[in-house]
Deep mutational scan, measured.
Amino acid sequence: MEVRTIKVFTTVDNINLHTQVVDMSMTYGQQFGPTYLDGADVTKIKPHNSHEGKTFYVLPNDDTLRVEAFEYYHTTDPSFLGRYMSALNHTKKWKYPQVNGLTSIKWADNNCYLATALLTLQQIELKFNPPALQDAYYRARAGEAANFCALILAYCNKTVGELGDVRETMSYLFQHANLDSCKRVLNVVCKTCGQQQTTLKGVEAVMYMGTLSYEQFKKGVQIPCTCGKQATKYLVQQESPFVMMSAPPAQYELKHGTFTCASEYTGNYQCGHYKHITSKETLYCIDGALLTKSSEYKGPITDVFYKENSYTTTIK
């Protein structure tokens, strides 16, 4: 009895394709271990004539594949690729409408935090270190965002349907971005203890939790000093293409032309909904596939993004 075979390709990165001759009487799992086709788990399936010449994702289970996976995804987590594939199996079914010149995501599976993050990423200057993220990001900007969303979920250790947080998501993504040249110098002034300067680099240099107003941050924000008295913390120097200011959701007025974009969060910790506000020729609110415009805006804002380049204080 002759062994019926077909020729397929296996890959971990969709760049390096490895030619395989597979036995049609055995499952993919018996031949390769966990195997995925377009995100779908085909591990328990036997090869079919229609699979001839198709590319299958496999887990990096030998040295060659491990090197290829690390170079593309910059992670050695053995569960990463499987999590990416199972997320992709959902995100490829989502709709990605162009809204006001940006790629958004039609609401499904509690994905409003991903839509808000995706919209924000198209408006701030950011370059990702893992080629996987950078490639998928370019495709997302062009309207094909399924891979990018699935990668975000995998890097953030999230599953489809789980509630997510924009600030946490951005923080994970910033860790995989090139923020080497970003720098922030802060000064804390206390009447009792004097003053202390701190220099922050990388992710810490672009994120701040405690106030939404970048102007206020430049002037000074009140913080408790270690001595128990009130101290003032203010920005001395900022070198970065953008800054992200966050605070627990509270009524906040966004003035046209003073910011790049913002995240609105309605609801409580267990259950809520994100919308995205962007400042173009007027203010726009993007909620999944829905767009509304207004000249002014007041609502429960939790993150505001500002364009920056270089700032030095005039406070002496």
Rank of each mutant, 00 (worst) to 15 (best):
E52Y: 13
T91R: 02
H273D: 00
Q122A: 02
V42N: 06
K158F: 05
V160L: 04
P60I: 00
V42T: 06
K307N: 14
S263F: 04
L212D: 00
S240G: 10
K233W: 07
M24Q: 02
R66L: 10
E215F: 04
Y73T: 02
H176C: 05
Y137Q: 03
H176A: 05
R184Y: 06
M26A: 10
L59Q: 12
Q270Y: 10
F9L: 10
V206M: 06
M209L: 10
I315C: 14
V189P: 03
Y155N: 06
Q251Y: 11
A108N: 05
L254G: 05
K93N: 13
E215C: 03
V67L: 13
P248T: 11
L179T: 02
M26W: 09
T76D: 15
C190A: 01
K54T: 12
T302I: 03
Y84G: 01
I301C: 05
Q20H: 11
R66C: 12
G161F: 05
F70T: 14
L212T: 11
P78I: 09
T159K: 12
I315P: 15
G82R: 08
K46N: 12
S181A: 13
R139A: 11
L37H: 13
T91F: 01
T10C: 12
L114M: 06
P130H: 02
V221P: 03
T314V: 15
D109I: 00
E308Q: 11
Q238Y: 02
Y265H: 09
T116G: 10
T314I: 11
Y234F: 09
Y297F: 08
L173V: 13
I223D: 15
A117N: 03
Y252N: 05
G288F: 02
T5I: 13
A231L: 03
L88V: 03
V67Y: 13
L212E: 07
I15Q: 07
T27V: 12
H176K: 09
V203L: 09
Y311F: 08
L88N: 00
D38A: 12
E264C: 04
L114H: 01
A115L: 07
K233G: 13
K219T: 10
M207N: 06
N111E: 01
Y269Q: 12
K298T: 13
K316M: 14
K229S: 09
E253A: 15
I105W: 00
I152M: 13
M207S: 10
K127G: 03
M207R: 08
L102D: 07
N157Y: 02
K275Y: 00
P224H: 14
L153R: 04
A289V: 09
C149G: 01
C225G: 02
T211Q: 02
W94M: 01
V8R: 03
A250N: 12
G299Y: 04
K229H: 15
T314C: 15
T192M: 11
P47S: 02
S25G: 10
E68F: 02
A87H: 04
V185M: 08
G53D: 15
N157A: 05
G257V: 03
A247L: 05
E168D: 13
T91P: 02
D303L: 04
A117I: 15
D77S: 07
D23M: 11
Q222A: 11
I286E: 01
V3P: 14
L290P: 01
A69P: 05
T282A: 10
V189Y: 09
L37F: 11
T76L: 09
D62N: 15
Q251F: 10
A250P: 02
S171V: 06
Y208N: 09
T103Q: 02
R141M: 15
P248W: 07
T75C: 08
F259G: 06
L17G: 04
V160K: 00
E308G: 08
D165K: 12
L186S: 11
T232S: 08
L126M: 12
F305E: 06
S213K: 02
K280W: 06
M170A: 05
G202T: 01
T116A: 10
K316R: 14
T91Y: 00
P47L: 05
Y252W: 10
Y73C: 00
H51Q: 12
V243Q: 08
F9I: 09
L88T: 00
S86I: 11
G210W: 05
